[in-house]
Design a protein around this nucleic acid. Structure first.
Lengths: 174, 174
DNA sequence: CCCTTTTCACCTAGGTGGTAAGAT
DNA sequence: ATCTTACCACCTAGGTGAAAAGGG
C-alpha cells in the first residue's frame, strides 16, 4: 500500500534548465525486530505506546528503488512546487512484481532521497559520483507495519486522505 | 468527451535514442455545415444513413493542438508499440479552458498527426522545418456530432469500451 | 423537426480502514 | 498474545450511452 504519511520535499539550487531524476530508497536503521506491548487489561492494542526489541532482524529484503514518476524533469519543474512521493508503495511480499518497495514488517527504516543530474556529456558515466546527491532526514524514520499500531495515525489518515472519507465522523478541519 | 474511435498509429523509422514530441490537430475538410435526414415515417433519426449539406460552415474554431501525454519520449519508446491518442478530448465549447480540441458540431474534420524531432543543437529553431513531419490519413475524416447519429457506431462503442459495459446485452466478442 | 445540454444510472479503476479468520 | 492476510463496504475520480429537457 501507499506509504503514509507521504514523503514530501522542497527543492532549491538546481539548474533550472537541466534534467534531473528523483528517487527514494529505504535502508534498515538497525538490525532489530520490534513488537508491541498491550498493557495488562487494556482493551485495544492501540493503547500501547511503545515498541520493544523482539530480537534480531529478519534477513534483509531486496533493496529496491522508487523513481518519482515525473522523472526525468527540468530543475525548474522540480523546484516550482513541493515534490510529493505519494505514488510510492510499500509491500512485505518478497515476491512482489509490481516494483513496489519491499520492507520487513516490524522493522525500522530510514527513507533516503536521491537526486541524479542527467549529464548530457557522452562520457557521463565518468561523472556518476558528482552527479548524484543523497539526502537523509532522520525525522522520517519509521517502523513498518501491516496494520496501524497507533490510533492517532489512523485518525490523521482518516482526516487527511480523501479515500478514507467513509470513516470520518467529524469535520476534517478539526 | 473522448474522441471515438481512438486515433492510433504505428511508427517506424525514428532514431531510437532521440527525443520526439507527438501531437495531433484537426483541420476543416470543407466550408460546409451538415445535417441528418430522418426518412418520412421512420421511428428514429438513427435510421437515416446520409448527410445533407445544410449550408455554409460556422466561423472556424480556435485551432488547438493535442500533445500525446507521453511526449517527449525516445524514438525506441514510441516505436515499440502502437501509439494511442485515447486521452484526446473534443468539445464544442468555444470557451473551454481544459485544453480540449474545439470543433464545430455537424462539420467535417481531418485529423492530422505530427512528429517533432527534439533537436539537441543550440540553434535548433533554424531547423524547425526539417524537424517537423505531418501525416494525414484521409480515411480518418469524420463529422463531429453532439450525439451519435448511427446505431452501428453506438454498438461498436458499447462493445469495445469498458466504460460502456452497462449497456451491453451480449458478449463483446460478438 | 433537429440538434444541444443536462442529468443520471452504471460502469472502470483504484485508495481507505474495519473486521474476521488465519498463522505462529 | 501478537501479527498477517483476505475480503469488504465505502470512498474518489472519471468515462459511458440513455433519456429528458431545452432551444431555435
Amino acid at each position: 500500500r501507499r506509504m503514509f504519511p507521504t514523503f514530501q520535499v522542497k527543492i532549491f539550487g538546481m539548474d533550472p534548465m537541466a534534467d534531473y531524476m528523483l528517487l527514494m530508497d529505504f535502508v534498515p536503521v538497525d538490525d532489530k525486530r520490534y513488537r508491541q506491548v498491550t498493557p495488562r487489561g487494556a482493551r485495544y492494542a492501540f493503547h500501547s505506546s511503545s515498541w520493544l526489541v523482539a530480537g534480531k532482524a529478519d534477513p534483509a529484503t531486496p533493496g529496491r528503488v522508487h523513481y518519482h514518476p515525473d522523472s526525468p524533469a527540468k530543475g525548474a519543474q522540480w523546484m516550482k512546487q513541493i515534490v510529493s512521493f505519494d505514488k510510492l508503495k510499500l509491500t512485505n511480499n518478497l515476491l512482489d512484481d509490481n516494483g513496489h518497495i519491499i520492507l520487513n514488517s516490524m522493522h525500522r527504516y530510514q527513507p533516503r532521497f536521491h537526486v541524479v543530474y542527467v549529464d548530457p556529456r557522452k562520457d557521463s558515466e565518468k561523472y556518476a559520483e558528482e552527479n548524484f546527491k543523497t539526502f537523509v532526514f532522520e525525522e522520517t524514520r519509521f517502523t513498518a507495519v501491516t496494520a496501524y499500531q497507533n490510533h492517532r495515525i489512523t485518525q490523521l489518515k482518516i482526516a487527511s486522505n480523501p479515500f478514507a472519507k467513509g470513516f470520518r465522523d467529524c469535520d476534517p478541519e478539526d
